[in-house]
Amino acid sequence: MYPIPSTIHQSWHAFFESEFSKPYMTKLFDFLTEQEQQGVVIYPPRNLWFRVFEMPLDEIKAIVIGQDPYINEGQAMGLSFSVPVGEKIPPSLRNIYAELASDLGFESPTHGDLSRWFDQEGIFLLNASLTVESGKAGSHLKRGWQQFTNAVLNYINEHTSHCVFIAWGAFAHKCCAQIDLSRHQVTKTSHPSPLGAYKTMKDAPAFLGSRCFSTVNDYLTTHNIATINWEIK
């Protein structure tokens, strides 16, 4: 069995012990090791694959679901939609900042690092695939990661209460299809990418103008949970 990374919070250990013992994870890690041995560049670096699980399970207030890590050098940092300070802000994140400004009046920051959301606000920034081959979007999703992260979402669904699953776009909507709406909320919009940000979907509003951030806080307030400070400085 692949060893549980030392950075994983203890509240996740039972989940990791269960999933890591399954054949699909053995196949996934064998594949990733083989890729590395062949010189294939994988993002993010191995030490960041499971960064999001440094957050204690009981501190999660909201889950932001992405699809892949960024596919270009220096961008992927183990948190969905986030890039390190100094990297160019990706287009989807620019629209996220635009909606923050419209919804809550925050100035758009000059960087794309969302670590404060993760470190201080209980926002679990999860990609459906935790690794990707350089330059090849979707290259690792069906190698086992989607099964793993679906299990993650199910575990949060079953072991927490009153979390908000933030589903931007059709892919994220599907990821949240089994969430128990008597225990949690799923906030759906279109994807914040330039191709989707203005498009109304059959079962969700366009991302821009959705006021999705204040919607999350409204739900938390209803359940007597401290609201999220969405400001990025």
Rank of each mutant, 00 (worst) to 15 (best):
residue 2 Y to D: 12
residue 3 P to E: 14
residue 4 I to F: 00
residue 8 I to P: 05
residue 9 H to P: 09
residue 10 Q to N: 13
residue 11 S to T: 13
residue 13 H to N: 12
residue 13 H to F: 11
residue 16 F to N: 01
residue 16 F to V: 02
residue 21 S to R: 09
residue 23 P to I: 06
residue 26 T to D: 10
residue 27 K to V: 11
residue 28 L to V: 07
residue 30 D to K: 15
residue 33 T to W: 04
residue 34 E to K: 14
residue 34 E to N: 12
residue 34 E to Y: 10
residue 34 E to A: 14
residue 35 Q to H: 13
residue 35 Q to C: 13
residue 36 E to L: 10
residue 39 G to L: 01
residue 40 V to S: 04
residue 40 V to L: 06
residue 41 V to G: 00
residue 45 P to I: 09
residue 46 R to L: 11
residue 46 R to K: 15
residue 47 N to C: 11
residue 47 N to G: 07
residue 47 N to A: 13
residue 48 L to T: 09
residue 50 F to S: 06
residue 52 V to D: 03
residue 53 F to I: 01
residue 54 E to P: 00
residue 59 E to K: 15
residue 61 K to G: 00
residue 62 A to K: 06
residue 63 I to F: 00
residue 65 I to C: 00
residue 66 G to R: 00
residue 67 Q to N: 12
residue 70 Y to V: 04
residue 74 G to E: 00
residue 75 Q to C: 13
residue 77 M to L: 15
residue 77 M to F: 14
residue 80 S to W: 03
residue 81 F to N: 03
residue 81 F to A: 06
residue 85 V to N: 14
residue 88 K to I: 12
residue 90 P to I: 07
residue 93 L to E: 04
residue 95 N to W: 07
residue 96 I to F: 10
residue 97 Y to I: 02
residue 97 Y to S: 02
residue 98 A to G: 06
residue 103 D to Y: 03
residue 105 G to C: 02
residue 105 G to W: 09
residue 109 P to R: 03
residue 109 P to V: 04
residue 110 T to V: 13
residue 110 T to M: 09
residue 112 G to P: 03
residue 112 G to R: 07
residue 113 D to P: 04
residue 113 D to M: 02
residue 115 S to V: 12
residue 115 S to F: 13
residue 121 E to I: 08
residue 125 L to F: 06
residue 125 L to S: 08
residue 128 A to W: 07
residue 128 A to Y: 09
residue 129 S to A: 13
residue 129 S to R: 02
residue 132 V to E: 07
residue 133 E to L: 14
residue 134 S to P: 08
residue 136 K to T: 08
residue 138 G to D: 04
residue 138 G to K: 03
residue 138 G to T: 07
residue 140 H to C: 15
residue 141 L to K: 10
residue 143 R to E: 13
residue 148 F to Y: 07
residue 149 T to Y: 04
residue 152 V to F: 01
residue 155 Y to N: 01
residue 155 Y to T: 01
residue 157 N to S: 05
residue 160 T to V: 02
residue 162 H to L: 02
residue 164 V to I: 08
residue 166 I to K: 08
residue 167 A to S: 06
residue 167 A to R: 00
residue 168 W to C: 15
residue 169 G to K: 00
residue 169 G to Y: 00
residue 170 A to V: 14
residue 170 A to R: 15
residue 171 F to H: 12
residue 179 I to W: 01
residue 181 L to T: 15
residue 183 R to N: 12
residue 184 H to W: 09
residue 187 T to R: 14
residue 190 S to W: 02
residue 190 S to C: 03
residue 190 S to N: 05
residue 191 H to W: 00
residue 191 H to R: 01
residue 192 P to S: 00
residue 195 L to G: 13
residue 197 A to S: 14
residue 197 A to R: 15
residue 199 K to L: 14
residue 200 T to L: 12
residue 200 T to D: 13
residue 200 T to R: 14
residue 202 K to V: 09
residue 202 K to A: 10
residue 203 D to V: 10
residue 205 P to K: 04
residue 210 S to M: 05
residue 211 R to M: 11
residue 213 F to I: 03
residue 213 F to C: 02
residue 214 S to K: 07
residue 216 V to N: 08
residue 218 D to I: 13
residue 218 D to C: 10
residue 219 Y to L: 06
residue 220 L to S: 03
residue 220 L to E: 04
residue 220 L to R: 09
residue 221 T to W: 10
residue 222 T to C: 10
residue 223 H to I: 00
residue 226 A to N: 12
residue 229 N to L: 03
residue 230 W to E: 02
residue 230 W to M: 05
residue 232 I to E: 01
residue 232 I to N: 03
